Simulated scan of single mutants.
Amino acid sequence: MTARNRPVAVLAMTADLPDLLFTPALRRRLAEDVELGPGPVLQEFDSAPARAALARAEVLITGWGSPRITAEVLDAAPALRAVVHTGGSVKGHVSRECWERGILVSSSAAANALPVAEYALAWILLAAKGARRLEHTYRTRRAAVDRNAEFPHVGAYRRSVGIIGASRIGRRVIELLRPFDLEVSLFDPYVTAAEAAALGVASATLPDLLTGSDIVSLHAPALHSTRHMIDAAGLARMPDGATLINTARGSLVDQEALVAELLTGRIDAVIDTTEPEVPPPDSPLYTLPNVVLTPHIAGAQGNELLRLGESAADEVHRYVTGLPLAHPVVVHDLARIA
């Protein structure tokens, strides 16, 4: 492919993100497929420089912080044929007009699913061992802990794990759990019992999963139908000593009900996402000994961002060589994906 017939690609994301996504070698690889101009990384689409860049763009490579691609923006980008997103969900910036105009849309959600699933796996195993409570007891007591007498029910052998949501991440978690001696069940209204069996797990209703699981890991999308799907009644169903792991979205859980349940000390929680995104300074979540609270780190962080960049570069290569996209986002899936 010569320089003259390479399509023009424009970056739309926060200014610091390209250096985190693309190594010099990966930039050179991109440059073989597209003309990636020296102009600014677009953080808005309204200025004259932004409109000049859009006017030439055939491929828009987007990331966190990308402005929304509205019908007006598309009018300013008559040559646009593909939007390749370096993050997971495209709902925040890709409008339905893109699909209505036949523009291809791709996401790196599959690449971002890997670190989330790994993070969930790590905490499932640590929760089975009772690691958080044992760590807190040992650290605060500063003396020997009689593990068998005080924590007789910990251990990862034949513990029951409930997965909520057979999303990319949920399916990857199920796959990662296969080598372990755990009993895994799944709740997903879109997955039949036969499909669950093919995944190697038992199908369950949400109430039954909550009642019968020592560890519950959330992997459902944030939709109107999933808001507060884990409410006070659901939390009350969880067995004493159970652990709730949320690496999905804070809106899936009624946080007021969760805090109330956690204050009793009856269950544990590993919380990577909350609603609001950062709890208020006086939230008990910061200090409760039965809570692991992390600032939304399960997804791609640090060098894991390079995986997202590589995924996007692969999609750009597929586009310019006429191959189908490996990770297309289609409009009829919008109602049920994150």
Rank of each mutant, 00 (worst) to 15 (best):
A202G: 04
E195P: 13
L186S: 05
P221D: 15
G200R: 10
I164A: 13
H228Q: 02
R237H: 15
S160L: 00
D231E: 07
R172G: 02
M229N: 11
A257D: 13
D188W: 02
T192D: 00
P221F: 11
T226H: 00
A242Y: 05
P179G: 08
D188I: 14
L223P: 07
L206Y: 12
L199G: 02
G200T: 06
P239G: 04
A197W: 04
L209D: 08
N246F: 03
I163A: 09
A260M: 14
Q255I: 05
E195Y: 10
T247F: 07
V201K: 08
T247P: 06
A232Q: 01
L244G: 07
G200C: 06
I163L: 14
T226E: 04
G241N: 02
D240Q: 11
R178K: 12
I169F: 12
G212N: 12
E195D: 15
V191C: 15
A248L: 01
M238T: 13
S213M: 05
L177V: 08
S203G: 11
V259N: 03
A202E: 12
E175M: 07
L252E: 14
I230E: 00
A220K: 13
M238W: 09
A156D: 13
E175R: 13
L182G: 06
T226P: 07
I163W: 06
N246Y: 05
L210V: 09
D214I: 00
P207W: 08
D188L: 12
L176Y: 14
N246C: 02
A260W: 06
S167D: 05
G200L: 13
E261A: 15
T205P: 09
R168K: 02
G165Y: 01
R227W: 12
R249T: 14
G250V: 10
D214Q: 01
H219M: 01
L182Q: 11
A196I: 13
R171N: 01
T211E: 12
A236Y: 02
A204S: 14
A242F: 08
V161Q: 08
V191P: 13
N246L: 08
D231G: 04
N246R: 11
A236Q: 13
G212P: 05
P221A: 12
G162S: 01
G250Q: 01
G170W: 10
F180E: 07
G155K: 09
E183W: 13
F187P: 08
A242Q: 13
G155S: 06
A233E: 12
G250N: 06
A236N: 11
T243Q: 09
N246Q: 04
S217N: 04
I174F: 10
A233P: 00
L262Y: 02
L186W: 11
M238R: 13
M238S: 15
T226G: 00
A156G: 04
A193P: 11
R178S: 00
L262H: 01
P221W: 13
A260R: 15
I163V: 15
G170Q: 05
F180T: 05
S217F: 04
H224S: 07
E256A: 15
A232T: 06
T243H: 06
